[in-house]
């Protein structure tokens, strides 16, 4: 959705490069297993799509002659090191297995939980949020919220299925969106443009 929006409108105002870069880190550190394990064709294709689309978005915002001019550089100032470092430490200390790939995988789970924060802060600073950007954040949060249902379903149907690190991180991730969801639905109900209160 976001890549299509940027490609079609040649405009990325209100889009956080920081969040996109965090997602690129998340996808690359988590999908290292592309090199040594195979789950399913769907799983492999989606991993490649996630890595590829976030790389494309970053390229557009950083380097595209027209799009890069519309980037809200002065507003997108979230200090991502304050997210990356704690997640790395957490990954080193709370994991299932003390190996490089497992620590990076765990780090990616923690980082994904908070990766949307720079985007939410930028949305809050943006007076009139572009409809497509609002929809993108809604779909991203909604996609992750559906995992909660999937986890309950798998827990009930697959004996021994449990993954506490993923469950807790995913629940926090979805909780971070709650405020956004509230204002998204309110603006949708009133047929108004989305704007988050500061």
């Amino acid at each position: 959705v976001l890549l299509l929006k940027i490609h079609a409108t040649k405009n990325c105002s209100g889009v956080s490069l920081k969040t996109q870069e965090l997602y690129a880190i998340v996808f690359v550190t988590r999908y290292l297993d592309l090199l040594f394990s195979f789950i399913s064709l769907y799983n492999t294709i989606m991993k490649l799509i996630f890595i590829g689309s976030s790389a494309c978005i970053i390229w557009y915002i950083r380097f595209h002659r027209v799009v890069s001019q519309t980037y809200d550089r002065e507003q997108d100032t979230f200090r991502v090191i304050f997210l990356i470092l704690p997640c790395l430490l957490l990954g080193i200390f709370i994991n299932h297995e003390f190996t490089i790939t497992e620590i990076l995988w765990t780090f990616s789970i923690y980082l994904e939980a908070v990766a949307i924060l720079p985007q939410l802060v930028l949305l809050q600073r943006t007076k009139n949020v572009d409809t497509l950007t609002g929809n993108y954040v809604f779909l991203l949060g909604g996609y992750r919220a559906l995992y909660l249902l999937n986890w309950i379903y798998r827990f009930l149907t697959e004996p021994g299925y449990r993954q506490w690190i993923v469950w807790i991180s995913g629940t926090i991730q979805t909780a971070i969106y709650c405020d956004f969801f509230y204002y998204y639905f309110q603006s949708w109900r009133r047929n108004e443009k989305l704007s988050l209160p500061s």
């Binding site: 988590r30 297993d33 394990s37 789950i39 799983n43 989606m46 991993k47 996630f50 299932h96 297995e97 497992e102 995988w105 995992y147 999937n150 299925y161 449990r162 993954q163 993923v166």
Partner: peptide, 10 residues
């Protein structure tokens, strides 16, 4: 429980 669950989700 330190058993590593399979990483079969995205």
């Amino acid at each position: 429980g330190n058993t590593k669950p399979p990483h079969d989700e995205l």
